[in-house]
Design a protein around this nucleic acid. Structure first.
Length: 220
DNA sequence: GCGACAG
DNA sequence: ATCTTGTCGC
């Protein structure tokens, strides 16, 4: 996977925020993903243990979810967890894992937000600038935004709104389970992001690619 | 000042 | 994210 690094990662929290305000202007979040052309989907996840972070990128076929490739990387955790600045904690190890990937996934699913972020540049959007390929943010809990009541049935989804702007969707990927917070990362849009996530979640709450990545990243 | 706050 | 056993429900 050819990467397009945009900047160094060793910044102070204040510098990181300034950088996000600059990079946000390059994020494309209104471009549909052609689902009929998707052949490979990647699931991305990072786990942290004892000051060390491990990243796992799992590539699977779509549909079918057959494993095609696994790329991992491990290194010291460089930045504390600060809401809104997750990419500066997980970005470095993810960059290393992406650099080892030979396959060229059509879409990347991230564990975290895309545009559903205070400055509209969550980790899925941020890394999308490195990948220059469609990325989608899949959050398990809310960072920002409000939403109307969501029906209990699988497939139900309502807009996620922040400061008068629709930044994503709250999606039920399984009946009677907590919903997921979906938002476009880069080179994607809300409708297609919701469609792809649902298409990748045939049985469990989390999309198949992310479930697999989570399992691999957690095996220390 | 108080509450919220991805992983 | 991580620390952790049993337990409720489909």
């Amino acid at each position: 996977m050819e990467l397009h690094p945009r900047h160094a990662w060793d910044l102070t929290p204040a510098e990181a925020v300034t950088l996000q305000r600059q990079l946000r202007n390059e994020v494309v979040a209104d471009q549909p993903i052609d689902l009929s052309a998707v052949r490979l989907v990647a699931g991305v996840d990072v786990s942290v243990k004892n000051e060390r972070s491990r990243a796992a990128v799992l590539v699977v076929t779509f549909p079918g979810f057959l494993l095609v490739e696994t790329a991992v990387a491990e290194r010291p955790t460089p930045f504390p967890y600060i809401p809104g600045l997750l990419s500066f904690r997980e970005g470095p190890v993810l960059e290393e894992a992406f650099g080892r990937l030979r396959a060229e996934p059509d879409v990347f699913l991230f564990d975290g937000m895309g545009t559903a972020h205070p400055r509209r540049i969550g980790i899925a959007s941020h890394m999308g600038l490195w990948l220059q390929r469609p990325t989608i943010g899949v959050g398990k809990t809310r960072l920002v935004g409000v939403n109307a009541p969501l029906p209990e049935e699988k497939g139900a989804h309502v807009p996620l709104i922040d400061r008068g702007e629709t930044i994503g969707a709250v999606v039920r990927t399984r009946t009677a389970t907590h919903p997921l917070f979906i938002s476009p990362g880069h080179l994607a849009d809300i409708p297609s992001a919701v469609e792809l996530v649902l298409a990748c979640s045939p049985k469990y709450r989390l999309p198949e690619p992310i479930r697999l990545a989570h399992k691999t990243a957690g095996d220390f």
